[in-house]
Nucleic acid binder design. Structure first.
Length: 627
DNA sequence: CCAACATGTCATAGC
DNA sequence: CTGCTATGACATGTT
């Protein structure tokens, strides 16, 4: 995203992209051809954070712009389309191919171009691209702009696709070819790659293009497209070449509807083009909305692809577009959901929904959850925290949900006491709550078992001592329930069920032991974590110590070498100096002293007056040996 | 059989 | 005072 932001903060590029988005033919392909890779990485590899970003934040901050400064509707529209593109890109793995092939088409188009340097286009796309096409509207500004794509629109065949892709990669696309590319296609392609351009930059040029805005946008055409979607489902084809031709023809349709240059000097354009392109336009939308959402890039430009003479105010534009966009989103989502739901249901049909719900929760014995549940003694919180544990038990045994799935709150609120005889099976089935792994395993494994298996498993499963005691005293609660219910609820249970003193004592013991058991687990876990952390710290400190020791040795070695060099230099200097007698200065009697100002002075070595001659000799010998 | 480990339980301190 | 948590110590079962 940083790269994308960097790119999009370049105002000219932003402007180019934005103009392309609103239907003005600008040189955006040159931009794309150069920055395609990073942009593609941005969108084709949606990070979880990116896709999971809340809609409001997506709308407001994805492009780095909070609100469209002048046109909130437009901003909203862009945000909506951005969201739609996010949805599309999730399922558009073949976007690269489409983009490449399309770019080649533009490059091989008949448009007259004076620029052949793609790099120049990248450097200053607005100079050539927008400079030519901005002054006029989409209908009249630049005949080449419409002639180019149309000429190249239907020229790509499946067998040519790969070749063209290579060609596109090898040869830089002429700038003007790219500049003349269809805004619709650019939009669709671009939005498949980029998280939408900067809406804010677009405004200064709105005055020059707002007419195109109004002309290009038509709600009725959007509706038509929607209505046409089902009619052309047979046209849906995952073939890339088909999708490409559709995308290119999309622009042709726009141009045709615009009524300008329909019969212009397009080399490849023919008189039979308009009907065919229209059909392709429709099929493009259908392909997007149904078969392969990612391939239907043209639908990204559907609001703009609808070309009519209707002038609609921008205030209404936003809402209309939003509806269209979100209809598409809904359509996508519903289609995907239908498929996914069918598959999921087929896989999970045999699983009890309750168990499915339980799978979302933790094992019910998670130390965190278990320890947290008492901290939140609210009834609602209790039901959320402890019910998961109980549900696990329910899922583990597969008992009837009437008895098993009753949460603690329900237990307490239920006026009628539970018959121990009936609850014996439903409550005393699995109380191995101390072992989360066992619980999870049991809950997952035992669900599809039959009653016979349940019985055998019940027999196999050992009840804890507290469970046995509670069963002996006919206490109609599981240890999990007793432990996890809030204290208020527990007190209410003790009061409302008319338990004997033994039962109450046992209930309290079970609760105390259960909580202490969980606390012990927590404590041990913390202890292990602490030990692990300390061990890691020990390792780290040990490594640091070794590193420091190595540095110390190296420093000492260096210091020794430097000292030797100094001594040698001192000897050399003193050997070149002469005393009054003309004799060389002895290093034993003189030394060199470096002053703070950089001066070097010869100083006699001061020896202790009390030093014995023997000591001097010993010192001298040592010095000599060292030297 | 023994050691190591895991787990439950008790006692206790502290909040 | 009560309930809860944390933790050391001990017992017991498992590997």
């Amino acid at each position: 995203m940083q790269i994308a932001k960097k790119y999009f903060t370049e105002g000219l590029i932003q402007l180019t992209i934005l103009l392309s988005l609103i239907g003005v033919r600008v040189d955006i392909d040159s931009y794309l051809s150069g920055y395609y890779t990073p942009l593609a990485e941005i969108n084709l590899g949606p990070s979880s954070a990116y896709t999971q970003t809340p809609f409001h934040s997506l709308r407001d901050t994805l492009d780095g712009f909070s609100v469209h400064p002048k046109c909130p509707e437009l901003d909203h529209f862009f945000a909506s389309r951005r969201l739609l593109e996010e949805v599309r890109t999730l399922g558009a793995p073949r976007f690269h191919t489409q983009l490449n092939a399309w770019l080649v088409q533009q490059g091989s188009g008949p448009s007259t171009s004076t620029d052949s340097d793609t790099g120049a286009g990248l450097e200053s796309p607005e100079d050539e691209g927008r400079g030519e096409h901005l002054p006029g509207t989409a209908h009249e500004a630049n005949p080449e702009a419409e002639r180019g794509p149309r000429g190249a629109g239907a020229c790509l065949f499946p067998e040519e696709q790969e070749e063209v892709k290579v060609k596109e990669e090898e040869e830089p696309v002429p700038l003007s070819h790219l500049a003349h590319s269809s805004s619709l296609e650019q939009e669709g392609l671009l939005e498949g790659v980029t998280p939408l351009p900067n809406p804010g930059v677009h405004h200064p040029f709105l005055s020059a293009t707002d007419i195109d805005w109004s002309n290009l946008l038509s709600v009725s055409d959007i509706d038509d497209l929607d209505s046409l979607v089902p009619e052309h489902l047979p046209d849906l084809d995952s073939d890339i070449s088909s999708a490409i031709s559709q995308d290119v023809s999309l622009h042709d349709a726009m141009v045709t509807n615009a009524g300008a240059y329909l019969s212009g000097g397009s080399e490849s354009g023919t008189g039979t083009r308009p009907p065919r392109t229209l059909l392709r336009l429709e099929s493009t939308g259908s392909s997007f909305s149904d078969a392969s959402p990612g391939l239907a890039l043209g639908l990204a430009a559907l609001p703009f692809a609808s070309v009519s003479g209707n002038l609609i105010p921008q205030s209404t534009l936003g809402s209309c577009l939003d509806e269209a966009v979100f209809d598409q989103i809904n359509q996508l989502g519903l289609d995907g959901l239908d498929t996914m739901d069918n598959q999921l249901l087929s896989c999970l049909g045999c699983i009890d929904p309750q168990v499915l719900e339980d799978l979302d929760s933790d094992s019910g014995l998670s130390l965190e959850s278990s320890s947290a549940s008492p901290v939140s003694p609210g009834s609602s919180e209790m039901s959320s925290s402890s019910s998961s544990c109980w549900d696990v038990e329910c899922g583990a045994t597969g008992y009837s949900s009437e008895a098993d799935s009753v949460p603690a709150k329900g237990l307490v609120d239920r006026p009628a006491p539970w018959p121990p005889a009936d609850l014996s099976e439903s409550v005393w089935h699995d109380h191995s709550y101390s072992s989360p792994a066992l619980l999870t395993k049991a809950s997952l494994k035992e669900e599809p078992l039959s009653d016979e298996d349940e019985g055998s498993l019940l027999e196999e499963r050992e009840l804890s001592r507290d469970e046995l005691r509670a069963r002996a005293l006919c206490i109609p609660f599981s240890a999990m329930q007793i432990v996890n219910m809030p204290v208020e609820e527990f007190m209410e249970v003790l009061d409302s069920h008319g338990f004997s003193s033994d039962q109450v004592t046992l209930l309290r013991d079970i609760r105390r032991r259960g909580k202490n058991k969980l606390a012990a687990q927590n404590c041990r876990k913390r202890k292990l974590d602490a030990i692990t952390g300390l061990q890691e710290e020990v390792d780290r400190l040990r490594a640091q110590r070794d590193r420091l020791l190595r540095d110390k040795h190296l420093t000492a070695k260096t210091m020794g070498a430097v000292g030797q060099q100094i001594k040698q230099l001192t000897r050399d200097v003193l050997a070149r100096l002469r005393d009054d007698a003309g004799q060389p200065l002895s290093p034993e009697r003189f030394t060199l002293q470096c002053g703070a100002n950089g001066r070097v002075a010869v100083q006699p070595i001061r020896r202790p007056a009390v030093a014995t001659s023997a000591g001097r000799k010993t010192t001298k010998r040592k010095k000599e040996k060292k030297q």
